[in-house]
Design a protein around this nucleic acid. Sequence first.
DNA 1: CGCTTGTTTCGACGACTGTCGATATCTGGT
DNA 2: ACCAGATATCGACAGTCGTCGAAACAAGCG
Lengths: 129, 129
Amino acid sequence: MSKTKALPLIESTGRQSVEPCCPPLTERPFTADEAETAARMFKALGDPVRLRLFTLIASHEGGEACVCDISDVGVSQPTVSHHLKKLKEAGLLTSERRGTWVYYRVEAPALAGMSQLLPHTPAPSPASA
Amino acid sequence: MSKTKALPLIESTGRQSVEPCCPPLTERPFTADEAETAARMFKALGDPVRLRLFTLIASHEGGEACVCDISDVGVSQPTVSHHLKKLKEAGLLTSERRGTWVYYRVEAPALAGMSQLLPHTPAPSPASA
DNA sequence: CGCTTGTTTCGACGACTGTCGATATCTGGT
DNA sequence: ACCAGATATCGACAGTCGTCGAAACAAGCG
């Protein structure tokens, strides 16, 4: 019944440049819809356990990892599964079963879409000059 | 009583290059501490109302705005104040009173620190060939 | 000094979230 | 067919979160 749709936050155009859901945070005020979409991304990474799981997978070989490899973050196995599901619903991960094991993989375009929300400026420090 | 300390997530070195709290998400598994710190940032932006307030301020002239300018996001004024406080505690905003009004300003270094958590790669699309 | 306007704090309430143990499902091997 | 290991789902529970109205606090003005 939950309306958790796995919207990938970026359009999978198959191109090199991703289509972010929203402009950079500093460009213009977000509409309610944009805020809703972008907030879902940030929220997904807004939990320490999820962040650890994500970095665990992202830094793993090939950007993917078996659940059995990342189940050691201090919470029970059901909780790990729960968080992986959340990340998957947020479009940040995909999963694939290979025999007995399930492998989670980083959805790189989604991550790239997120990165485009933040300005890449080298922190304009007015105190410098 | 709340242990909400406004840790700015990056070191205010006064330099052009900011000191991010953690390496990029894809570089290596975060420690529990790193995950805690980074999650706090993402969490702060993980609410639609906060995101709208933030973009409202960030896109405002000079990267700052009076509370009276941004109180129209669909929630009550106390709630706006509550969210602004949260963003401030996360180190993403600062506030300053000028006479009757209070101005909130984007803490650019914090934003830059966040941006360094996400890989700036142009989304490696394996389907491109 | 008291009124008005702008902003924050307080207290309460419902909703959501992270967590767990128990259980179900899936897969491969015996 | 059965069992064992891996993962997901379920149901429950405590804690957090977003929200509000009421009230407090701050600043300017008459």
